[in-house]
Every structure is written in structure tokens, then in C-alpha cells.
């Protein structure tokens, strides 16, 4: 076991980890931040996406020890300081961009990363960017709509009901 220290959602945290401890396990079991989900073993479903120094990464495909010293943001760090939903989260609720909610943390983290890179993405850019986040419930329609809306574009005009 070795001790790792990193910043998670703005707070400095430390914990004992094995070499094989994944970042997702450290967040979920070590820190109790269970919003980050694990939906596959092959780095494809994207339910585990968090931000590592501002970039979207799959936390199930990275070792906790490799994140030592980094700044990690998880879904639990996305709400506004007063606890209300941030713009991206609110757009997901407004446009019914989630159903069972399991893929949602990863979807929100990926969508936020997209909007940070590309504040006014097209529909095609959104679909392409989200190719590493699998949702089984929504058929993606309302997720794409939510991201369009979060970017300040008129989602209703772009997506028929």
C-alpha cells in the first residue's frame, strides 16, 4: 500500500492504495464518492468519466497512483456552490436527458468537457464527442438536445419532438 494525495472537487484528500487500485475504486470506495459509476471493464461505456486536471478521462482505466498530485473533479463537484444544478446539469433535467441515471454522471462530465473546449458545438460535434459514453435508455435524442441547450442554442428548433 502506498499513500496518494490528490485534490478532489477542490479538497485535498489522501488515502492508502495498492498499485492496482483504479482511480474509480479510490473515488467510490476510498472516498465514498459513488456518483462515479463503473459500467464496463473495457474503457468504453464512459459511466466513470471524471475530469483530471480539467480533461475528461475514464477513471476505471487509470490507476489511482497515477493521479497523485492531480486535480480531479467528479459529478459530486458539478453542482453550483449553493447546491443547485449547474447549467449542464439543469439542461439535462429540463430536456429529459436521463432516465435510469446510471450513465448520467459520465454523460454530464463528458458534456461539460465538450462545452469547455467547444462552447457552441453542432449536433454532429456533440454526437461525435459523446461516442465514448453509452446510454441504453434515451436513444441519445434528449442528451444531444440537453447539450445544445446548455450551450445556449435553441435546441427545440434543432430537434423535432
Amino acid at each position: 500500500m502506498t499513500k496518494v494525495t490528490m485534490t478532489v472537487n477542490g479538497k485535498t484528500v489522501s488515502g492508502e492504495v495498492e498499485g492496482r487500485t483504479l482511480l474509480s475504486s479510490f473515488l467510490r470506495e476510498g472516498l465514498g464518492l459513488t456518483g462515479t459509476h463503473v459500467g464496463c471493464d473495457t474503457s468504453q461505456c464512459g459511466a466513470c468519466v471524471v475530469h483530471l486536471d480539467g480533461k475528461a478521462v475514464k477513471s476505471c482505466t487509470m490507476f489511482a497512483a497515477d493521479a497523485a498530485g492531480a486535480s480531479v473533479k467528479t459529478i459530486e463537484g458539478m453542482n453550483n456552490p449553493d447546491g443547485s444544478l449547474s447549467v449542464v446539469q439543469q439542461a439535462f433535467q429540463d430536456h429529459h436527458g436521463l432516465q435510469c441515471g446510471f450513465c448520467t454522471p459520465g454523460m454530464v462530465m463528458s458534456s461539460a468537457a465538450l462545452l469547455a473546449e467547444n462552447p457552441k458545438p453542432t449536433e454532429a460535434e456533440i454526437r461525435h464527442y459523446l461516442e465514448g459514453n453509452i446510454c441504453r435508455c434515451t436513444g441519445y435524442h434528449n442528451i444531444v438536445k440537453a447539450v445544445l441547450a446548455a450551450s445556449g442554442q435553441d435546441a427545440a428548433a434543432m430537434a423535432a419532438e
Binding site: S43, Q44, G46, V49, L52, K55, A56, V57, K58, T61, M62, S110, A113, L114, Y129, E131, G132, N133
Partner: peptide, 9 residues
Amino acid sequence: IGDPAVRNR
């Protein structure tokens, strides 16, 4: 390659 999260690592 892969997807954005994969490309970041």
C-alpha cells in the same frame, strides 16, 4: 482514435 476521454490518456 477511441473517444475524447481515451484520447486524453
